[in-house]
Design a protein around this nucleic acid. Structure first.
Lengths: 145, 145
DNA sequence: ATAGATATTGAGATGCAATCTCATCTTGAC
DNA sequence: GTCAAGATGAGATTGCATCTCAATATCTAT
């Protein structure tokens, strides 16, 4: 029998409250806020359990970044910032039948898909533009020296 | 100036020859076959350089899996096996304008996207079915004991 | 309520990929 | 050839993730 313990509840609570797709390490930190004594093993174990039980999902966003967890288990897509790693849920469903098409095209037995959009979030975008301007004015200054 | 050294050439060669989206560790192993003395630092460094130079791409396939490298830098999508991690390139482009739509919908400055299809590759699928049958016949046997 | 079986926990050890450091070596320009 | 910039690789280090195991908590049957 699988038990509902305070530790497990805390992990799930954190996951449901989070809308930023935290990594396991971030979940661990947050859970510690509520259950200071909880161990890393318990948090990692619980995350795996939740995923196995269909209560959570693992995402591999970003490039070579750690796995990120999401309590939103319905099919959805992601927009993510290549600078700060921020991620948000969006909907960009493929036409009905696209999954079946791809299955027969590849011979794989495909059961799910998702679309990842990558670019810069508004705040990183502003920052990037500001830095760009600055480096241009630096160039001018250096030329004139 | 950026130099083309035998080590860097070897890493790029391995990447171009590979069609299985190897992880950095796998690239390292393969490069060692040709350049036994090459160090891990060099391979990891070179992979980052290649990505920065647009000669390669990093993918985050699978869930919590290590980053995987791909010398195919043109836009394309992936089908991947959730059991063995095999990945293949496919084309599943969104309608023209989808990227711009999503940008204006989210406020992000989006520059790329890709679709990930997940399921079982033909051989893992066969294996899974075989195991399923076996476990059923085991159940029967156990019941009759 | 109690005993015994089963499940869960957390500290610490371990594993492993990835990065960093730095002395040494290579390369290209002059 | 000489020199400066660039590149290399052994080994140390970091940091995430998993495993081990003794202690603890929880369930079930009586």
């Amino acid at each position: 029998m699988l038990r509902v313990t305070p530790q497990r509840q805390a992990v799930l609570d954190v996951l449901i409250a989070a809308h930023d797709h935290p990594t396991a390490a971030q979940v661990f930190d947050r859970v510690r806020g509520q259950q200071p004594g909880i161990g890393a093993a318990t948090v990692y174990r619980t995350l795996s359990l939740l995923v196995a039980a269909g209560q959570a999902r693992v995402l591999s966003l970003g490039e070579g970044a750690s796995a990120r967890y999401d309590a939103n288990v319905s099919r959805h897509d992601h927009v993510l910032c290549v600078d700060c790693g921020a991620a948000m849920d969006v909907e960009a469903p493929l036409p009905v039948g696209a999954l079946a098409d791809m299955s027969s095209r590849t011979g794989y037995d495909l059961t799910e898909y998702d679309v990842q959009f990558r670019g810069r979030c508004p705040s990183c975008d502003r920052l990037a533009h500001r830095l760009q301007k600055q480096s241009k004015s630096n160039e001018k200054r250096n030329r004139s020296v």
